[in-house]
Computed example of a mutant assay.
Amino acid sequence: MLADLGAEVIKVESLEGDQVRARPPKRDGFSAYFGNLNAGKQSIACNLKSPEIIALIKDLIATCDILVENFRPGVMARFGLDFAALREANPRLIYCSISGYGQTGPKALSPAYAPVIHAASGFDMVNLRYQDGADRPATSGVFIADVLGGTHAFGAIQAALYQREKTGAGQHIDLSMLEAMVGMLVFETQEAQFPGDARRPLYTPLKTNDGFIMVAPTSPRNFEQLTDAVGHPEWRDDPRFLTNADRNANWATLLALTETWTRERSAEEAEAILSRHGVPCGRYREIDELLDDPQLASRGAFAEISDGAGSFKVPNPPFRMSGSRVEARNHVARLGEEGADILTKLGVDESAVAALRARGDLL
């Protein structure tokens, strides 16, 4: 996201490279998954066990505004690259650590990936409670905690940059993916403290004759629009649906009656009719449908970038700015592609770069 806003981002990789480079979908050895996550970044691949490399990385960090790392707490200190070791050389440095549980606390050193955090945060059990008939938490496939943690880091970095403009001083950002997930469970956090009310209305997929549609008539006006759309204005006088509280108490019944109408139509037809009447709704779509979606196309939601295997689409940030270019940059670095150039800009001469390569410390 920082690169999408035009920041010069240098990815420091091991000599073996980020493991995501090997993940599918791959074409001719190039991972589109990696390209999606790393568009616009430069790459330097080096041996972080080499004292000379560590010294050069410190010199590099001294020229940077921001450092982002997501090792387990303590790993950067073992490299000699923790915030305390770097802030003297670069007091304006904004140092962002992203970890599963944060830098402190009894679980700080526990290993954690997104699916683990989904389970530990209560998110998966909340979802299970909302799935009538399910007997175990859902399988993880979309790594919400990773994306949510990165997005919170993006916001925190902006705030730290703004504070630095006022004070001249950088700072350490300690971001916990667990806390990011807990913060997303707004209603559930309060319900856990004050239980006892009726179950909240759940938004259930409604069947159509060729798929599913989501219908969300949450406001009194939406309910009236729904009754018009499905041809049942008499529902407005039904004692079960007279007030918002009545509708919430009989929400499942309202959706079941609506499903009687949607089952007789295709998802596309139901969506068109409901939308025409102003009812919030959306048919369930496969992800490949979105690649050519007119709404997303009109917004420029995707950028087309290229790597060594050809071009592919990646999402742009979900916001537009009137005075800034906001889009994925068309560059996917090969492993260590800019390493020599980065060191040369630091003042390392060509013979020294060649020596690092000869010793196997630099790709």
Rank of each mutant, 00 (worst) to 15 (best):
A160P: 13
Y162S: 07
A198E: 08
H172E: 14
N222M: 12
P220F: 06
A169N: 13
G183P: 14
A229W: 10
F187S: 03
L185V: 09
H232G: 00
N222A: 11
E179P: 02
D174Q: 06
T204F: 01
L242H: 10
R240W: 01
Q193C: 08
E234F: 11
T167Y: 01
R240L: 12
A192C: 00
E179T: 08
P217E: 03
P201N: 08
V186L: 15
P201W: 04
M177F: 05
T189I: 07
T227W: 11
D197H: 11
F241H: 04
R199G: 00
Q171F: 05
D210G: 06
L206F: 00
P233T: 12
A192Q: 11
Q193E: 15
R240M: 04
D228C: 00
L202H: 00
P195Q: 06
E234R: 12
F212S: 03
E234G: 09
V230H: 03
M181W: 07
W235T: 04
P220R: 01
L226R: 08
V182F: 11
L202T: 05
H172M: 15
S176H: 05
Y203I: 13
K207F: 01
E224K: 15
G183N: 14
Q163P: 00
D238P: 04
P239H: 02
R221Q: 15
R199V: 09
R200H: 06
P217D: 03
D228T: 04
D197S: 09
A192P: 02
A160R: 08
A159L: 15
H232A: 14
E191M: 11
Y162A: 15
D238A: 06
L242N: 02
I173G: 09
S176D: 06
P217F: 09
A169F: 05
V182C: 11
T189R: 05
V182I: 15
D237G: 02
L242Y: 03
H232T: 13
D210A: 00
A198S: 09
L178K: 07
L202Q: 10
E234I: 12
S176A: 12
G196F: 02
P201D: 07
V230Q: 02
L226T: 03
M214T: 11
L161D: 01
L242F: 06
G170I: 03
V182D: 09
G196M: 03
A169S: 11
M184T: 13
R221T: 12
A159M: 12
G231P: 05
I157D: 04
F212I: 00
V230C: 12
V230S: 03
P205Q: 00
P195M: 07
W235H: 07
D197M: 08
L202N: 02
D210Y: 07
